[in-house]
Amino acid sequence: MGNEEEYMYTKEHEWVCFEDNVAIVGIAEYAQSALGDITFVELPDVGEDVEQFERLASVESVKAASDIFAPISGKVLEINKKLDAAPELINKSCYDKGWIAKIEPSDLDEKGNLMNAEEYQQFLEGLDT
């Protein structure tokens, strides 16, 4: 699903990548690893409007329940229905097969509020110290 280095990230560890003006959204390795085995994903409805940094979905793991926030505002075009029966796809392949939703962005300027791969890497390093 695109080149990982072109992904953009939020401080809540969601990722987004853009393909033909469609934003594909998922959670980053850091979040996947912190949550542990994921057992349930509550997906948004197709057609739903979401706001940047507002709740998009929620996930439950063997350890905790957690909200997933939209990295960008827009309309939900498609959801990853495979996660209903196989939520562990997020653990196995968080940047590819474990994608959560595709969004038609309403304001691409919002990209300015996101981190690129390098900035996110620095952000992660800051978390470790």
Partner: peptide, 13 residues
């Protein structure tokens, strides 16, 4: 005390 199952994969905590 009660024991119960969820109707789906969502878990009580």
């Amino acid at each position: 005390i009660v024991y119960f199952t969820s109707v789906d994969r969502r878990s009580p905590r």
